[in-house]
Design a binder for these strands. Sequence first.
RNA 1: GCGGAAGUAGCUCAUUUGGUAGAGCAUCAGCCUUCCAAGCUGAGGGUGGCCGGUUCGAGCCCGGUCUUCCGCUCCA
Length: 517
Amino acid sequence: MASTNNEDLFKNIISHAKEYGFIFQSSEIYDGLSAVYDYGQNGAELKKNIRDYWWKAMVQMNENIVGIDASIFMHPTTWKASGHVDAFNDPLVDNKDSKKRYRADVLIEEHVAKIEGKINKEVEKARTRFADGFNEYTFRTTNARVLENQKKIDDINLRFKAALEANDLVEVRQIIIDLEIVCPISGTRNWTDVRQFNLMFSTQVGSVSEESSTIYLRPETAQGIFVNFLNVQKTGRMKIPFGIAQTGKAFRNEIVARQFIFRMREFEQMEMQYFIKPGTEMEWYKYWKETRMKWHRSLGFPESKHRFHDHLKLAHYANAACDIEFEFPFGFKELEGIHSRTDFDLGNHEKFSGKKLQYFDPELDQSYVPYVLETSIGLDRMFLAILSQAYAEEKLEDGSERVVLRIPFFLAPVKCAILPLVKKDGLPEKAREIMNRLRFDHLCQYEEKDSIGKRYRRQDAIGTPFCITIDHQTLEDNTVTIRHRDSMLQERININEIEKILGEKVSMRNALMQISE
RNA sequence: GCGGAAGUAGCUCAUUUGGUAGAGCAUCAGCCUUCCAAGCUGAGGGUGGCCGGUUCGAGCCCGGUCUUCCGCUCCA
């Protein structure tokens, strides 16, 4: 049972998640559906609590951030404007010998880079030869070998661009063959056809197929915010800088979707788009990097578990971008992205919709398209991060073992278990009384079956922070024991103190205070 | 998608040249009443992932298919 390495550990976490009602595979009775998962009774609670914590940290704690809930269906032009129709298509090609898959555009770009390398070598050689009298510009524009290579590059780029624009995949393959590009692994030119993978799911609107039109399930929630920028700004009388937050499902037809709920075809995002004055983006980029990292750190996990990863290669819409990575059992992986999106999105929506999406800045006495700073976190990934960090297999002093989920108290699915020590002598009745008081504020569980030790372990396994046990002494002096999940220690307290203690311990308040410092 | 491994009860696994499926834990009922899992008695639960082939006979051999895990790749 005990995990000896990270691979075992991850497997055990997955089994634990299923065994205790956190995550089930979708449509399991039909053999499941690849890369789609369902949240069970405890998973749904944990997920909701994470979402709530994010929402409160972003919307409730910031006067200038408001939340919306946009639809999953959007006008198809949205995705032309956002660049997803074009940029989310990767032409892929396999080498039949090495069985490795490559992006066709990357193969061609790398080939071009090689030729550029040749040119640079030529330039450097000349520089040493001519010493002081060397003029790089003249050399680059007159040297025969340089010109020849430069023409090669220009020709390739021209041909490749034309092929992409015409969506001519046969031509893309022909380019690879003509350039005699070989697979770095096998060294052969034995390529399959180039295939296109559209990462957006499409469906039909309209009941009759002839009248229907194709629309997409959104691949990101952000566009629902951009198209509502003016609605919210005007009706909320928002002044720049201000933010719009949203949580919701998004869909991507991943070629390879794996690693449990880390990469799913249907997933939930928590995004906030912060609208700012152009030119201030680096300032806000820095601010939100720090602010979002604080949020992650407020969960009390070891500092070494999080790190920033700055993007060198930027997406089509960004001028600066980084990830907050978390060390999952399978390594450091992206949890949240922070992107400076410039005016790319609003600018394009202006272009495609013909509507002005601008903000009048009274200080500057002029209108502009705001710049956007995005924070985008995967809720399911956050769930997995918390689950894998919380999961612990412990060896106790008496030699026995327990599995405990050390979930931060305020995120735990069940906050408190009410346990009569035995199933008679009026203890169940007393326990029910307490349960009926606590249920107004917290999700509690009442359990009377099995030995008390077994019941404690079951609560540990789902991460319940507190167990209230009613024993014979309770009937005499109105006291109970409260047992702490992490230390397994017990205290005897008066029944009237339970609500206060529990209220303080499981409150989100402490964490929120930590991030607003 | 490609390559490798795997799929038998809710979970972990057994059934060894192919002869019509078993254990522990879990679940449920009853007994016991005990502050950190594994006390006693009994019960339910499987068309062996699915489809097909070989065979008198397939959980076991063969083919296909689905799903999961690992590697390649991408992203939240």
